[in-house]
């Protein structure tokens, strides 16, 4: 971690590192510690004074049935998004890994959704599935489905999952493709000589060899579904109808802004921080080991 050769200078290194440390302290540590501190406070109804209440906010939070509902919603959402986008991306990556004409063009045509803002992705999908004017909604009605994500919580959930998965496919595709290209062709050829058919080769050789990539993407996708989908949900459903699409991050936002429940919102933030720390730790542990098969 340290160079053998280095410079010695009394003040220069501090000047170099000062801007980053300053921004980090002011905009990361200070607010994070505020959140932790606030989670132990209870504000009165007018926000004029606050008293220290220990773990009261946490106790309220974890005795609230609606919080568990939100956790469940988040888990359903994250699982669905991860499964759909990972499997779609794997299917496409396996095809693109074959020696096809125009393989690079395919890659270009599949990776650009990464650049679409989550909120914009939400608006695009809302436009297609809007109950009164969407093109796809029109088709669904012809099929006899009473499609209305504005009123039906399940429909709303399906909609946000589709939009969130759509946006993540390109990312997963790129990493799967890189993972597939790193598998030595000789192994696959050897299996073919032994008489293994393509499907068998995929499940017994390619897929296990791909497991480090898959595991890495699993963690990244869960983090994405937890934290980076705020824009999608806010643009499409605003957490509704009846909180059917309210994830943990969205609830922090909604409770702090609408409810004015700063202590409760802060306690939720702290719970989220713990989740992020856990996920990051898993990610780093994995990176240390690198290969798991």
């Amino acid at each position: 971690m340290q160079k053998r050769v280095f410079f010695t200078h009394r003040f220069l290194p501090y000047w170099l590192i000062a801007p980053q440390i300053a921004v980090t302290l002011v905009f990361f540590y200070w607010p994070a510690s505020q959140a932790v501190w606030q989670s132990f406070l209870l504000e009165d109804a007018f926000g004029l004074s606050s008293t220290f209440v220990g773990f009261e906010n946490y106790r309220t939070l974890f005795s609230d049935a609606s919080y568990y509902q939100t956790i469940l919603t988040t888990l359903v959402f994250a699982t669905a998004v991860t499964l759909i986008s990972l499997s779609a991306a794997l299917l496409l990556a396996v095809q693109a890994d074959k020696p096809l004409r125009g393989a690079t063009a395919y890659r270009t045509l599949l990776i650009w959704p990464y650049a679409v803002a989550p909120a914009v992705a939400g608006v695009l999908w809302l436009f297609m599935f809007h109950p009164s004017l969407g093109v796809v909604a029109r088709g669904l009605r012809h099929l006899g489905i009473a499609w209305n994500p504005m009123l039906d919580g399940d429909h709303a959930m399906i909609l946000v999952v589709l939009a969130a998965a759509w946006k993540q496919i390109s990312y997963n595709f790129l990493f799967f493709l890189a993972g597939l290209q790193a598998i030595p062709k000789s192994i696959i050829e050897a299996a073919a000589i032994d008489g293994a058919r393509p499907a068998r080769r995929f499940w017994t050789i390619v897929f296990p060899l791909l497991s480090p990539t898959t595991f890495f993407l699993l963690v990244v996708n869960i983090v994405y579904a937890f934290f980076d989908t705020f824009g999608i949900i806010d643009a499409m459903t605003g957490g509704g109808p009846a909180k059917a699409t309210e994830t943990l991050v969205y609830k922090v936002f909604a409770d702090g802004r609408l409810g004015g429940d700063l202590g409760g919102s802060a306690a939720q933030s702290v719970v989220l921080m713990i989740i992020v720390i856990g996920l990051t730790a898993i990610q780093f542990r994995y990176i240390e080991r690198k290969v798991t098969y």
């Binding site: 980090t24 002011v26 905009f27 990361f28 200070w30 607010p31 994070a32 505020q34 959140a35 606030q38 934290f227 705020f230 991050v249 922090v252 936002f253 702090g256 700063l262 919102s265 802060a266 933030s269 989220l272 921080m273 992020v276 720390i277 990051t280």
Partner: peptide
Amino acid sequence: TLMLPVEVRIYPTYKI
């Protein structure tokens, strides 16, 4: 700071 995305500290950051 890897572990402190803006989404989890949104209101205190706003206040600052």
